[in-house]
């Protein structure tokens, strides 16, 4: 039995278009064209990420310290959730390839079930990514940004654990409140005001002798090589004077986890990949209904399932690279 579907209807002569040197149908070749060009797009993004990272190699955020959350569980679980997402995507790739295999054998019901499971897997992945984004945007500990755009984070000197701003910042009654729409003469409101002012954080740092500052710089030698630099108490009190702004969470302009470019690339690359997964789910749903309606049964072959399968595996393939270069390396 043929392992790849043939759509050719009549044998034609070589120069009449009947010759197929690559042994694949027009539709499949076009899908491969698209995938190769899309692969180059993603490579461009990841290479640009590598460029920025090599540029700031000594201050780049450590992914293990950024992505530490798992839904419904409190605590510090680096990588676990991303590993789960990776597994979900590989799993949905497997159900997809099983759907293609069932299609070759013209088993309509098996194709329906495997397509259904693939769609569920894709939906779980997109949902997980949305949650990951929300967590990243919300932030966890908060930090201070200096005039030069560097990030200062806070540690407990005894435990070595990160400390949230809320745990030590002083509450100083302040006239500055978030500007709401009803307060404005014109319909104006400001987008965001951090929960603490710079002044409150500074006072809090001075009042708590066990809080020190951690800077972005990664130690290049010594016992703590590969970790971020922790300042002494004296250095911390000196360093905080450089702070100009309180940062909570991450967006395209500020990033409490470190370099802003890290957040920018995170949103851009995982966003673009998430968009691919979303499109994949949509296309899978269309194909799913076609299978249910028996379109391919009447057509006599399931090549459409195979083509959408190629796209789906490609999305998985890209994730394998994003996972490595964003979360592991």
């Amino acid at each position: 039995m043929d392992t790849t579907v043939t759509t050719e209807m009549a044998e034609e002569n070589v120069w009449g278009g009947g010759n197929r040197p690559l042994g694949a149908s027009y539709g499949k070749l076009m899908m491969w064209f698209f995938l190769v060009s899309d692969a180059l797009t993603f490579s461009g993004f990841l290479a640009a990420y590598g460029f920025s990272r090599f540029k700031f190699i000594e201050t780049w955020p450590i992914a293990d310290e950024v992505f530490t959350h798992v839904p419904f569980f409190h605590g510090n679980y680096p990588m676990i959730y991303v590993a789960f997402m990776t597994f979900i995507l590989i799993m949905s790739s497997v159900t997809m390839v099983l759907a293609v295999d069932a299609g070759h054998k013209m088993k309509q019901n098996a194709v329906i079930w495997y397509m259904f499971l693939t769609i569920i897997g894709g939906a779980i992945f997109v949902g997980s990514q949305a949650w990951e984004w929300a967590t990243f945007i919300k932030g966890d500990h908060g930090a201070v940004e200096t005039k030069g755009g560097r990030i200062l984070q806070f540690l407990d000197v005894e435990t070595g654990e990160r400390v949230a701003l809320a745990d030590f910042a002083k509450t100083i009654p302040d006239v500055r409140v978030e500007h709401d729409e009803p307060e404005g003469l014109w319909f104006e409101s400001e987008s965001f005001l951090p929960s603490f002012s710079m002044n409150e954080v500074e006072e809090g740092l001075m009042a708590n002798p066990n809080i020190v500052i951690r800077t972005e710089a990664i130690l290049q030698e010594g016992e703590m090589e590969g970790h971020k630099t922790v300042l002494t108490r004296e250095q911390s009190l000196e360093k905080i004077k450089e702070g100009v702004e309180v940062v909570e969470g991450a967006n395209l302009v500020h990033n409490e986890y470190g370099s802003r470019l890290f957040a920018d690339f995170f949103f851009f690359i995982t966003g673009f990949h998430g968009f691919h997964v979303f499109s994949g789910v949509m296309i899978n749903i269309i194909i799913f209904f076609n299978v249910v309606l028996g379109t391919y049964e009447r057509r006599g072959h399931y090549e459409m399932v195979e083509k959408v399968g190629l796209y789906w595996h490609f999305v998985d393939l890209v994730w394998v690279f994003v996972f490595t270069f964003f979360y592991l390396v």
């Binding site: 392992t3 690559l22 042994g23 694949a24 790739s93 497997v94 390839v97 595996h313 490609f314 394998v320």
Partner: peptide, 29 residues
């Protein structure tokens, strides 16, 4: 990091060869 990159390429190979069934395609493709 070398281990991560090599393992990634290994994974990519098996996804492309067995899931995208490049193994069954013509070598020119």
């Amino acid at each position: 990091n070398w281990i991560f990159i090599i393992l990634t390429l290994v994974k990519a190979y098996y996804i492309a060869w067995d899931f995208m069934h490049l193994r069954d395609e013509k070598s020119s493709l």
